[in-house]
Each structure stands twice: as structure tokens, then as C-alpha cells.
């Protein structure tokens, strides 16, 4: 019943079409990038960068109210900070031998603190705006946003197409990648920049708090059932898209924020898969 009404509205309103299309692309990109992040055991980097990128957005909001320069555009500042964040993390890692992952919470706290500071400094920010930074506002995707997303999706796809083998090799065995003649530094730089780009792009759509979940959880589900790299990636994309579309429909119908609904569906998928796995293995052990 409500599917029909969602469909009817979908044809009636441009903004819904933009939102759905943007959502589908996000649903494709997030687990794709997420896979690389998960395999390389740097899942926390997504959260860290998104929070640091948020600082860029907030500083951008603050500065662009003071001075009307294009480079202080919040989205652009977000991208700059996201990329900057990856370098700061890398630098901080060098200070520790066994506690390298400390670099992440440090950068993350710094991001949160700066965001809070600059939000309070730039008075009279609409609370709707800050809310959408935190939880996203997929329904307010504009046609220019959509074009940006399409361009970035294409860039990511071209990058992955040309470096697929190298990425897989790098992810599984960095030392081997090095000796086999892959320019590891350059490839890592490429992957980092793409990660940073995608994260800052997602802030507007899914919100800072949910970006990491969107990248990580579908992959966490897929690892449990995959038996090859390719089918793990494909199933993570399927989970991601299922949660996006159903989350979209449900939240539109129930008139609640989309982002959280999508993540909750993702988590439900994960739980179901874990349960099935548990039941299967207990059946298998009983048979023995």
C-alpha cells in the first residue's frame, strides 16, 4: 500500500528522484570503499575522517559568514580537512610504535572539538543545518549535489577499474605488493584521497555520525558469508542497497530522518546473518 504512494510521489517530485538516485549511488560507493578500509584493518579511519571533515565544514561555515570567499565553501573545506586528516593521522602514527591506532581518536577528538567551537562561534546557525550535518538530509539533495555525486562515482569506478588487481594484492599482503613492483605509496595515496573525497561528500547526505556505519556494516555482514573477494564485495553492495532503498521508503512513509533508519536496517541484516551462521554451525556440530 504505502509502496504505491511512495512511487506516486517519486514521479511527482524531482527532489525525491534526486534523493533516491543519490542514495543508490551512495549505497554503491560506501561498501566498495568500506571493503578496502575493513581489509586493511583501519575501519576506524572512516569515523575519524568524517569527524575531522566536519571541523572543516564548521570552519567553512564560520569563515564564509565573515568573508565571502569561494574557498570557504563548507563542502570544499570539508574535503580539504578530510584529506588533511589522513596526513595528520599518518604523521601521528610515526610517534608510536605499539599504539599507532591512538592517532585516530586524537584526530577525531580534535575534529569534534573544532566543530563544536566553530559552530558556537558562528551564532545563529539554523539547528536544522547542524542536525543535517550530524544525521544527514538525503531529501534535501539538490541537482548540483547529484551531479557532484555522479562525477565522484565515475572517478572512483575508473580508479578501481584500472587498479583492481593492485588494490586486492595490496590489501592482502603489503610486502608482496611492494616486491612485485607495485608503487605502494602512490596506490595508498590514491586510495586515501578517494576515501577522503567520498567521506566529505557523504557528510551532506548521510551525516557525520552515520558515514562510518554505512561503509563498514554491510562489509561486516558480507565477510561472514562470502567465500571469495568478489562475491563479498558484491554482497556488501547488495546489503547496502537493500537497506538504502527500504530505509528510504520507510522513513518517507513514517516521516522520520532517513539516515538512522538505513543504519538500523543494516544492523538488522547483520544480526540476521550472525544468527543464521550460529544456527548453521550448531546444526553442523550436532550432525557430527
Amino acid at each position: 500500500m504505502f509502496l504505491a504512494s511512495v512511487f506516486k510521489d517519486l514521479f511527482a517530485f524531482d527532489f525525491l528522484q534526486y534523493a533516491l538516485l543519490a542514495g543508490l549511488l551512495v549505497g554503491l560507493l560506501a561498501p566498495l570503499i568500506g571493503t578496502v578500509v575493513v581489509i586493511r584493518r583501519i575501519s576506524f579511519i572512516a569515523d575519524t575522517l568524517s569527524h575531522f571533515s566536519l571541523a572543516g565544514v564548521c570552519i567553512g561555515v564560520f569563515l564564509s559568514k565573515l568573508i565571502n570567499w569561494k574557498i570557504f565553501d563548507p563542502l570544499f573545506m570539508g574535503i580539504v580537512f578530510s584529506i588533511l586528516g589522513t596526513f595528520v593521522i599518518e604523521k601521528l602514527r610515526g610517534f608510536y610504535k605499539n599504539y599507532k591506532e591512538l592517532s585516530m581518536p586524537i584526530v577525531m577528538s580534535c575534529g569534534v572539538a573544532l566543530s563544536g567551537l566553530f559552530i558556537s562561534l558562528s551564532n545563529n546557525i539554523d539547528s536544522k543545518y547542524t542536525n543535517s550535518l550530524l544525521f544527514g538530509s538525503i531529501l534535501s539533495v539538490s541537482s548540483t549535489d547529484l551531479i557532484t555525486i555522479i562525477i565522484i562515482t565515475v572517478i572512483v569506478f575508473i580508479f578501481i577499474m584500472f587498479t583492481y588487481k593492485k588494490i586486492v594484492t595490496l590489501c592482502f599482503d603489503e610486502v608482496y605488493a611492494r616486491v612485485s613492483g607495485i608503487n605502494v605509496k602512490l596506490l595508498q595515496l590514491g586510495l586515501t584521497i578517494i576515501l577522503a573525497l567520498v567521506i566529505s561528500l557523504f557528510i551532506d547526505i548521510v551525516g557525520v555520525l552515520l558515514i562510518a556505519s554505512l561503509m563498514i556494516i554491510p562489509v561486516a555482514s558480507a565477510i561472514l558469508i562470502g567465500d571469495s573477494f568478489l562475491n563479498t564485495v558484491v554482497s556488501s553492495i547488495v546489503f547496502s542497497e537493500v537497506s538504502l532503498v527500504s530505509g528510504f521508503v520507510i522513513s518517507y512513509h513514517a516521516n522520520v530522518t532517513t539516515g538512522p533508519v538505513i543504519i538500523i536496517i543494516n544492523i538488522l541484516i547483520l544480526i540476521v546473518i550472525m544468527l543464521i551462521k550460529k544456527i548453521r554451525s550448531s546444526i553442523a556440530s550436532k550432525k557430527k
Partner: peptide, 8 residues
């Protein structure tokens, strides 16, 4: 070597 993640 990185195990656990599925790869053939």
C-alpha cells in the same frame, strides 16, 4: 598474511 577476509 591477512586471513579471515574471504579470497580464493
Amino acid at each position: 598474511f591477512n586471513y579471515e577476509f574471504p579470497i580464493t
